[in-house]
Design a protein around this nucleic acid. Structure first.
Lengths: 171, 171
DNA sequence: CGGCAATACTTTGATGTCAAAAGAAATCCC
DNA sequence: GGGATTTCTTTTGACATCAAAGTATTGCCG
């Protein structure tokens, strides 16, 4: 019956998109389309989970990543430029996130003594505490993603070519 | 020497992050962290490529997806709600993107004759032409992602559990 | 030493995302 | 019939991202 047909049609939106791609004669691009769409969706789902887990402690994932990076550094501080470089985000994004972290009293910004162009972001005690709690929360998600550890390793390997092409992996 | 050490330290930022995770005693979460970080980065790299390819035709990926969806529909038109549902994006995002597509003369919005709450987005000839060109461009990227087709299939399989958990796949 | 180039950040502007609230319009139900 | 409820979309607000322009500083070179 028609109604059943309609119900079943989109039981997997990506499979449906792939069918469309093939119907239109773009078979060569179909696997790539399906893979990118899957990647985009998985990204969306996982980021949502993380954001939901971080919201109660007043952080976003972007801000968590900055705190986490500062937490790993020896003095709990890093220049803005270094932050953007290691997290691979645009300088303007760093400025924006750090501004909010400062507003919330989690870190402070100071000028570098040696070079006045450089701004150093430094973790404050409140930031350290928030970071500890946030890390626990985020790790809960990392430990329960769906694919098992072996599959996660495989996933990392499969995407390595993409990161390599972007110059992320120097060898 | 110290300098060499420093240079090598971040030849793969994700491997470095994983090392930190393990050092801090979060080994159980390390594979998940590495996988999520990889996913986020691969997403960023691929989306950038697509955006760069679409910019010359005046589209973003979000807008392309809407045009593509309309292009597949029988009448070249769909209600706003359906668009958000099939592309799995928030209604407000659909409103925002469709507004710009209308501004650029690629589609038009009309009220549904049966139900005045429903707004229907309808592809215009200019939109069809832009869509055709955009599809060619995007397909070029889909055909040359890095991983080969078999690996792409594998990737899709590995991420299926995540989509399934989100309720994307009904079975 | 003075000036121009390079470097480090911030600002501004355009987009995109989601949540929550605000509006309409259709439907339900007493 | 008419108020309450549900549904569909838009608006508003907070954040994020990138590109490009603007500002400050440092550095190098003639």
């Amino acid at each position: 019956m028609k109604s059943i047909d309609l119900q079943r049609r989109y039981r997997d939106p990506i499979a449906e998109a792939r069918r469309q791609w093939i119907v239109h004669g773009w078979s060569d691009a179909a696997p790539g389309m399906a893979a990118v769409t899957t990647l985009v969706r998985a990204h969306q789902v996982i980021i949502s989970r993380i954001e939901a887990e971080l919201a109660p402690v007043g952080l976003t994932f972007a801000r968590f990543e900055i705190l986490r990076l500062l937490g790993f550094s020896r003095r709990g501080s890093l220049p803005m430029g270094k932050i953007g470089e290691r997290l691979q985000v645009h300088p303007a994004s760093v400025t924006s996130a750090v501004k909010r972290l400062e507003r919330d009293g989690l870190l402070r910004r100071t000028a570098s003594p040696e070079d006045n162009r450089i701004v150093i972001a430094e973790l404050l005690p409140a930031g350290r505490a928030t970071l500890d709690e946030a890390t626990i929360r985020v790790n809960r998600i990392f430990e329960d993603l769906g694919p098992d550890p072996d599959q996660l390793e495989h996933l990392i390997e499969l995407l390595a070519p993409v990161r390599r092409a972007a110059g992320d992996i120097v060898e």
